[in-house]
């Protein structure tokens, strides 16, 4: 753990380190950014730094060896509370019991650190009951709200926290991190890193379901010849994918990235900012007009949203392809 190990979040880490050094640690932080970019790791690193018994001020790093650090690392430090959603939501009772504990003094560390993971899952009641304590917590208490969807939090919560932005990781950073963990899957790493859209967790997921990457070619080929296919073909393909239990969202995202590349290349003519780096030739040869590409992107977005609303995945996919073809 520790700040050193957090990659690609220089600004966020810098802000936190400087606040510790100048003893300007706020009582409430909101860590926001894509899933899998290091928000929770940073939260734990901050907790460690605040409770390290031999804090090194020259490096602004926790020592990692004292009992405080080791306990944070093992997740059993008595002054650090982790609140995680129960059955998808953080309930008011969880916040109430938290408030009971906050008013005790620190057991052994210097700060009580309360980490609310996936804070966007706070129920309305829970987030309201958090407001007062979040604004004026007892001494030496630091709240860290971690969320990938800050839009779902209320204004009143956001306004009480210092907001720390976490950036999507660069393709290079993801590659590096993946190499360390999975040196055997070298061939797929750069592709997974490109398709992950800046999220390490996503890249790892893609890599784990290696199949998805292999199927990318199949999916893109399908989209390319969509206009030659009949509607019955489309339905048959969707049925096939459904039978093979493919994730519709992943399929749509692959198509989304493909059209994004078409759009970017058509408008800028630059190869280096494309994501599907291995398909540059195909992208150059594409016959789509800009209007077509744009329409496709809007359709994909709508379809993904429909998936979130629990529409049957197979229907979403079928309707998507048909609409795309009719256009």
């Amino acid at each position: 753990m520790g700040f050193v190990e957090i990659k690609g979040q220089d600004t966020a880490v810098q802000i936190l380190k400087k606040s510790i050094l100048s003893s300007h640690v706020s009582h409430a932080y909101l860590f926001q950014g894509l899933e899998g970019v290091g928000k929770k790791t940073t939260a734990l690193a901050l907790a460690q730094a605040l409770n390290c018994l031999k804090f090194d001020t020259s490096l602004a790093e926790a020592c990692g060896k004292c009992s405080g650090c080791i306990k944070v690392e093992n997740g059993n430090h008595p002054d650090i509370q982790m609140v995680i959603p129960e059955k998808y939501v953080i309930k008011i009772d969880q916040i109430r019991s938290l408030k009971g504990k906050v008013y005790y003094k620190c057991y052994e560390g210097r700060y009580k650190v309360i980490i609310l993971d996936n804070a966007h899952n706070l129920t309305i009641e829970a987030s309201n009951s958090l407001l007062k304590v979040l604004e004026e917590p007892p001494q030496d208490t630091v709240f860290i709200l971690v969320t990938s969807e800050p839009g779902k939090l209320t204004d009143t919560i956001i306004s009480r926290c210092q907001q720390i932005q976490f950036q999507p990781l660069s393709v290079y950073t993801i590659k590096e991190l993946l190499m360390k963990k999975n040196p055997e899957k070298l061939s797929q790493i750069s592709l997974a890193a490109g398709l992950a859209g800046g999220s390490l967790a996503k890249a790892e997921e893609l890599l784990a379901e290696g199949e998805v990457l292999e199927n990318r070619q199949e999916t893109i080929n399908f989209v390319k010849k969509l206009f030659e296919l009949s509607f019955s073909d489309i339905i048959l393909w969707c049925e096939k994918w459904d039978r093979e239990k493919k994730k519709v969202k992943t399929i749509l995202e692959i198509i989304q990235l493909w059209y994004r590349d078409l759009l970017v290349f058509r408008t800028t003519g630059r190869e280096e900012i494309l994501i599907n780096q291995d398909l540059v030739a195909d992208i150059k040869n594409s016959q789509h007009t800009l209007l077509n590409i744009n329409y496709a992107l809007l359709l994909i977005n709508e379809s993904i949203k429909n998936l979130e609303y629990n529409v049957s995945p197979r229907l979403v996919l079928e309707v998507f392809f048909m609409k795309l073809k009719i256009n």
Binding site: E149, G151, G197, S199, K202, R260, T267, L298, N301, I304
Partner: peptide
């Protein structure tokens, strides 16, 4: 507004601007 729902907000903005 739509950005809340998507995992690829950049694509959304690019497409929106082009449109």
């Amino acid at each position: 507004r739509e950005m809340r729902w998507t995992s690829q907000p950049q694509i959304l903005l690019e497409a929106g601007l082009v449109e």
